[in-house]
Structure formats: C-alpha cells, structure tokens
Design a protein around this nucleic acid. Structure first.
Lengths: 237, 237
DNA sequence: TAGTTTTATGTGTGATCACGCATCACAGAT
DNA sequence: ATCTGTGATGCGTGATCACACATAAAACTA
C-alpha cells in the first residue's frame, strides 16, 4: 500500500531556522532585539542545540548580528547601511531582470500580468499583507525566470535584510496603498519592456521601482527606529 | 600604563572557521571531498562543537555544501554554476569599481600602481603564489575604496566560491604567468580610467579582466575536475 | 556465482552539562 | 555624591554522550 505520504525528514535546526527566518522577514522582531538561545528554545519547545545552529546560520546570512557581548540580536536599523543595500539591490535586481528578459515566454508575461492585477486589487481593498505578498511575488517571478539560482539566492539574502524594515514601514504609514498604485504602474512598464524584449528598459524600471520605494519609506523607517527613548517604542509585531 | 596589547578574544569556532576558510580559498581541498566533523576536530585538536559551528557557517556561505546524506563536502565543480558565478562577478565587481571611481584619491592610484608593479615582478619571477596574492590585492583594494562594506562582503563570498578553482588551474597550467602579463595590462587600463574619473571604463575593464581570465582557465578547470562523462562546453560568458 | 540479507562501522543530530564571561545591583570607600 | 570592588544571575561556549541513519563489508541463500 502506497497510501503513505512522505514524512518530513528535515532536521530540527532547519525547521527552527525556517521559523525564525520567516518571523524576521515579516518584521516580527524589533531591530536590535536580543535573541537568547534558551528563550527561543523554550518558546519553540526544543533544546538549545537546534536553536544554536539556526542562529549561527542566520548570523552568517546577516539577518542577525553577533555583538561584542557575544549575544545575538536582530540587525539594528542603520540608514547608511540601508541606503547601501538599496543601491546594491537596484544594481543586482536590474541585472537579474536583464537576464530574465532574454528568457521571456508568453507564460511568464501572463503570469506577471496576473500577479500585478492581484496587486492592484489589493491596493483597492487596502489589504496591506496581500499587497506586500503580491509585490514580492512579482519581483521573484522575474528573478526566477533569469534561471540563475545563485543570483536568485543572493537576491533572497538582500530581501531578508531590507524586507523587515520596509514591511514595518508600510504597515505604519497610513495610506501606503497609494504608493503601491504607482508601483503597479512601474510594474506594468516592466512587463511591457519584457514583452518587447527590451532588457535595458525592463531592468531600469525595476531599479526605479526599488529606488522609488526606498526613497519614499526610508525616512519613515529611520524615524521609527532611531529611538529617542522617551517616545513610544514602536511595536512591530 | 598602556603597554599591553589587547588579547585575542575570538572564540574557538571562529578560529576553526578561519582556518578552514583559508584552506578552501587556497584550493587545498579537492572539490567534492567530504569533511567529517570528527576528522577535522581531531586534526585541529578540538572537540566536535567548534568544528560543527564552523562547518555550518561555511555551508551558509556556500563554500561547502550539505549533501542529501547530511554529510558536508567541499562544493563540487560545475561548469554551468561556475559560468553563472563569473557573470555575477563581472556585474557586481564592475559595479563596485564604478562606485570606487567616485572616491578616487591620489593615494589610491599610487597604491594600485604599486600593487600592479609587484604583480609584474611576480610574472617575471614566475612566482605563482605572489602573482595570485597581488592580483587579489589589486581587486580588493579597488572594492574597498568603494566604501560599501556590504557589497565588499558579497564580493568576498563570490571569491570564496570561484577562487579555489582558479587557483588550482593557475597552478597546474604551465606558463600561466603569460596570461597574467595581459592581466597587468588590463589593470593598467583600470588605473588609467580611475585616474581619469571614467567610472564606466574602469568598471568595463574590471569585467573584462574577470571574463577573460575565466574564459582562459574555465575549460582547464572543467577538465581537471569533471568526470570523464562530460566533454565540457568551454563557453563561460 | 549472483543476489539478498545481515552485521558492523562510522557519522550527523540533538540533549545535557560544566565552565567562564558579561552585566547589573549593592555596599563600602573615597 | 561619586567611584570601585563584590557578589549574584544569566548567557554563550565547548565537551561529552546517546541515538538513528547511512554505507559497505560480510554472511547467507538460491
């Protein structure tokens, strides 16, 4: 009888890693927040070992930082480094887009169009979570089309490091949907360029999308996290 | 009294990490070679724990790979992925060079000139190790000048993944010095462009340097490491 | 002899513990 | 009132062990 579905054979520290990574991506942690091994282990119901390895990996991926104290914390927000990351993202993601332009298929175009429509609908519904998800899907659908797995992983790492801040900002800025309406227009131009086989223009519009978003929300993020300690500490979760 | 220099307060797994990383960079391991925790621990005179964490980190940095067996091995050579890495390096390192061009100082120019002279001397002396070191120094001096620490670390990661193969190829190709004589000429053009403030041309020449080297040695690497089944397609770019 | 099962060895994973360092509060000294 | 030594507490680090799984050699069956 073959009625049995395959069991999950991932290791415990991999599952812990996934959980933590997801939480970081969602901006569930406050930048600078310290994660102790024992605490995380207790709240996840495991022993220390898997947590230790998961934290080590996340530090290696720069999603967490190890301080001089040797304690591990969520990467604190720093406007200079954020700006640098954005410039890197603009360059690398537009490169990925240019490569993707060489591998455009009708299926890709229709998939992108569909995702962008979903994003427009989310704007209309003021559904921030659906908005962020469809935006991410739009970008990564393009990057996957480039068929460069190593480049893809580099980009994932960059999103892991910029995503939390942007998500937190989107959530806390009233009327952030309006900005994403412009985003869908830029996306439309990307689709158009891809369909026309214009790699340069597609890449340039992706860079525009990233740069415009960062410029719109960067100051807000800085304001949120550069803590004058008397002000209410923003709860991100 | 300030006569005391700071003591080394690094952890054991950091030192293990450094040693392994250095060995990998130098191409001391055969691609595909399995590293067992106990063996490494024994040969380094430590217990398993520090080795475990060091290996975990190197896997996260893609210098090592974890196979389905759960055993950890040196990343095997794969011409397709190598070609992809080279394309990524060309794009990212030329970007770093363009940023560096905006921060050129006379001191930088003279330092680069000096390093390139040292490289020419190494070519003349047929000193392969000095050659490789000065070549690496030349590149990273430029990238450091860009003053983008996160970009710098991404590039370091890329060198960690392409360096071992290239170093091994250089060592085994008789007369590899001749190629690097051309390299010093390209470097000279980079210096010239940087001095003239021509970011575009400086970046283009760095990309040329990378691409030319990879195309020259890529097939040799494939021949060295590929199983006999693969009559390799030597196109890299 | 070929194919299959069994056994043995080695390895990664996760749990647990001892140790040393960092941090903070408090008491005593200046 | 400020500074400094002391003790308590919490945490990361590294060592050690039990267990499960993988691999391959050995033994067995047909």
């Amino acid at each position: 009888m073959d009625k049995l579905s395959p069991v999950d054979l991932s290791t415990l520290h991999e599952r812990v890693y996934s959980r933590l990574r997801e939480a970081i991506s969602q901006g569930d942690f406050v930048p600078g927040e310290v994660l102790t091994i024992r605490t995380v282990a207790a709240s996840l119901g495991t022993s220390s070992m898997p947590v230790r390895e998961a934290l080590r990996r996340l530090v290696a991926e720069k999603a967490l930082v190890q301080q001089a104290n040797r304690s591990i914390a969520v990467a604190p927000f720093n406007l200079v480094m954020f700006g640098e990351l954005i410039r890197i993202r603009m360059a690398i993601e537009s490169m990925a887009t240019r490569y993707a332009a060489q591998k455009v298929t009708p299926a890709l175009i229709s998939r992108l169009t569909e995702v962008n429509e979903r994003m427009k609908a989310a704007v209309h519904d003021k559904d921030v979570e659906a908005l962020l998800d469809s935006n991410k899907t739009f970008h990564f659908t393009i990057y996957a089309a480039a068929e460069m797995p190593q480049l893809f992983e580099i980009i994932q790492g960059l999103w892991l490091r910029t995503g939390p801040y942007l998500r937190a900002a989107y959530r806390s800025v009233p009327g952030a949907e309006r900005h994403f309406l412009d985003g869908t227009r830029v996306h439309a131009r990307v689709i158009q360029a891809l369909e026309a086989g214009n790699a340069q223009r597609a890449g340039a519009n992706i860079a525009l999308d990233i740069g415009f978003t960062a410029r719109r929300f960067g100051p807000k993020i800085a304001q949120m996290y550069s803590a004058p300690e008397d002000a209410a500490q923003p709860t991100v979760a």
